[in-house]
């Protein structure tokens, strides 16, 4: 934990340990670990001298933060209106079947995290799947396999 604390310490120091910088600090921790470890949140609350429940409230309010470890490959399936009418549900179901997890979960080997989003602003390409910030338009259940295989080297 001391190694982690020094990492979190340097992040907090960047923002001069100001309570107002809580979100920026949490963003940097999220970037570092891919999720928000509980110990680091406790530590942030202690150093910034704000109630633990406030840190927890902020961490659960924003979708960008996750309290559970996320996989290396993050797959977001757009469930917006345009993608929905073009069959994003079937794409999601195929991904769930292939990865053997439900939307919002991470595979046991920590490789994939599957999530749904409500719109990624690329409605003309629908259904859209975003995989590690790379956009895949006009997805079909058939294309899902090649998407996953291209990553498994």
């Amino acid at each position: 934990m001391t190694a982690n604390e020094s990492k979190v310490d340097s992040i907090i120091d960047e923002y001069n340990a100001e309570p107002g910088s809580l979100i920026s600090i949490l963003q940097d921790i999220q970037l570092e670990y891919n999720y928000l470890p509980e110990e680091s949140l406790e530590y942030v609350a202690k150093i910034l001298d704000i109630p633990r429940v406030q840190v927890f409230g902020v961490a659960t309010f924003f979708k960008a933060f996750s309290l559970k470890p996320k996989g290396k490959q993050q797959i977001h399936v757009c469930m917006g209106t345009a993608c929905h009418v073009r069959g994003s549900k079937k794409v999601l179901e195929e991904l769930e079947r292939k990865l053997e997890i439900k939307a919002g979960d991470t595979t046991d080997d920590g490789e994939y995290t599957l999530e749904t989003v409500n719109c990624v602003g690329a409605c003309a390409l629908g259904p859209v799947v975003v995989e590690n910030e790379k956009y895949h338009g006009e997805m079909t259940p058939i294309k899902v396999e090649s998407l996953l295989n291209s990553k498994k080297v």
Binding site: L41, A45, P51, R52, V53, Q54, F56, G57, T60
Partner: peptide
């Protein structure tokens, strides 16, 4: 005491202790 607060957002908003566990505060 500041032992309880809101967590989550929108329809999932609820009142809880930090990390949904027994709170020291």
């Amino acid at each position: 005491a500041k032992a309880i607060g809101f967590a989550g957002r929108g329809p999932e908003r609820y009142i809880t202790t930090p990390f949904d566990m027994n709170s020291e505060e």
